[in-house]
Design a protein around this nucleic acid. Structure first.
Length: 474
RNA sequence: GAUCCGGUGGGCGAAUGGUUAAGCCACGAGGCUUUCAACCUCGUAAUUGCGGGUUCGAAUCCCGUCCGGAUCUCCA
């Protein structure tokens, strides 16, 4: 039988890291076993589900490259099917109508809680035969009274639940919309899902689903409940731990392969390998190696992984991406067109940035003259002693025939030589003069990227700056 | 409160019951160097939550206990 996996998010928000990892695991399994990966939208919570969320989830998955082989299927398109199964259960006496009001149920739970009991429906409508006029009933599933249910989990092993711990859950609400535990079972069966891989917050739901499955005489899929992802403080990952939305990471300058790589290593490992290409993940992934314990999300390591993939990505792929981030940083198209080839910027900056946002930030100087010198850098390097150095550089660079990394580098070195100064005394004033900062790529690379046309005026301006400073000091 | 799941350095995590408990991130020191990075070397950091037991030998098996998380909705 071919493997069929699925990702079944509820469209009540954006795709976050935890959900994306679940999707990834399912996708990986399907790819590895030449099966199918199904996307199903669990939108039975009509209050909170939105079309916008569906679009965002699909877009995020597409950005990550986790394309579904089938779907997206919407549960709200299948309401008739759930109602039919519900009727079937009702007819065969495996479910019943419950007329209890929400107030009654709340009161019952509070009463149970006050006695330190687990709040559960007591089954008071189980044997009711008469309808209550004016009340739209819900349909409850008759959970077996005795015995136990064994969940065979590929990650957790066997987990036994006593039926006495379970109650008669609602499968169809009074408005005819199914509840999660019901629709999920029917859908997985109808869609031929063979492997259910989901967050372990669903482990407790599984015995209920197994009972429904067995009442319907439906085949049982394999289950694998993966550990959750926690924030640094050990609590469930949420917004206050920083970005959790997959698309936020795109905006923050992360590469999709880095997101995938970081996610796959959260709760899963393969020897001591840290970096995985997608194809490697597909080959190496297996449920047996998935951890049982929850993992904390570590932004620092995520950054490192992104840096690694930034370094490995081909320049011509990064170039257009860098262009959009430069645009976000305020560069005009005209700037980009008249500047150096983007692939060159990528190649000199890729070891200096952990994200594309950082790469763009660190490349501003190529396009725009520093509005003001960084105070500390100017104080240290644009001093009186730098005047003859800058003037000599002005002359030497001005007469340069060919302007590239090597020639500008050689020019700077020759000036240092002639003045019998260390490179630091020459390159640093120059660097501050043309970038406004004390840190930038190698001086030759810096000058080559800025270009002759922009370097010389900036240098002239720095000379004036130093002169003015000397004048002030006298 | 009940049930279920988990617990190995700060984080991710490795380790058929068998040397001195891998590796990566972060952190610290040094090297390289025109700056920032990158890179190289070294280092700090764990009586494997705790307590018992089984065993020649326990991170690993058993019992207890503590802590954390999940679930207990006409949410998913």
């Amino acid at each position: 039988m071919t493997m069929r996996t699925r990702f079944a998010p509820s469209p009540t928000g954006v795709l976050h890291i935890g959900g994306a990892r679940t999707a990834l695991f399912n996708w990986l399994l399907a790819r590895r076993h030449c099966g199918a990966f199904v996307l199903r939208i669990e939108d039975t919570d009509t209050e909170r589900s939105t079309r916008e969320s569906i679009d965002q989830i699909v877009a995020a998955m597409s950005w990550l490259g986790l394309e579904a082989d089938e779907g997206p299927f919407l549960q709200t398109d299948r309401l008739e099917r759930y109602r039919a199964v519900s009727r079937q259960l009702l007819d065969s006496g495996l479910a019943y109508r419950c007329y209890c009001s929400r107030e009654d149920l709340t009161a019952m739970r509070e009463e149970q809680r006050s006695r330190s009991l687990k709040p559960r429906y007591d089954g008071r409508c189980r044997s009711r035969t008469d309808a209550v006029p004016g009340v739209d009933p819900v349909v409850r599933f008759k959970t077996p009274v005795g015995g136990s249910v064994r969940v065979r989990d590929r990650i957790r092993g066997d987990v036994i639940f006593e039926n006495s711990e379970l109650d008669d859950l609602v499968i169809l609400r009074s408005d005819g919309i199914p509840t999660y535990n019901f629709s999920v079972v029917i859908d997985d069966a109808d869609m031929g899902i063979t492997h259910v891989v989901r967050g372990d917050d669903h482990l407790n739901n599984t015995p209920r689903q197994l009972n429904i499955l067995s009442a319907l005489d439906l085949p049982v899929p394999e289950y694998a409940h993966v550990p959750m992802i926690l924030g640094a403080d050990g609590s469930r990952l949420s917004k206050r731990h920083g970005a959790v939305s997959v698309m936020d990471y795109r905006e923050a300058g992360y590469l999709p392969e880095a997101v995938l790589n970081y996610m796959v290593r959260l709760g899963w490992s393969h020897g001591d390998q840290e970096l995985f290409e997608v194809e490697e993940m597909v080959r190496a992934f297996s449920l047996e190696q998935v951890n049982e314990s929850a993992a904390s999300f570590d932004p620092d390591k995520f950054l490192w992984v992104n840096e690694q993939w930034l370094r490995r990505a081909p320049s011509d792929r990064l170039a257009p991406l860098l262009a959009t981030f430069l645009g976000d940083a305020g560069m005009e198209d005209a700037d980009l067109n008249t500047g150096p080839p983007l692939a060159e910027i990528v190649d000199t900056q890729r070891h200096r940035a952990k994200t594309l946002v950082e790469m763009a930030e660190k490349s501003r100087f190529i396009y725009t003259e520093p509005a003001a010198y960084a105070p500390k850098a100017a104080k240290q390097h644009l001093r009186g002693v730098a005047l003859p150095v800058l003037q000599r550089l002005q002359g030497r660079l001005g007469e340069l025939g060919v302007w590239n990394v090597e020639t500008t580098q050689a020019a700077v070195e020759s000036v240092a030589d002639e003045l019998q100064l260390k490179m630091g005394k020459v390159a640093q004033p120059l660097r501050v003069a043309v970038t406004g900062e004390a840190a930038s790529p190698g001086i030759g690379q810096t000058l080559a990227l800025i270009g002759r046309a922009k370097t010389l005026p900036r240098l002239a301006r720095a000379v004036e700056f130093v002169k003015a400073r000397i004048a002030r000091a006298q």
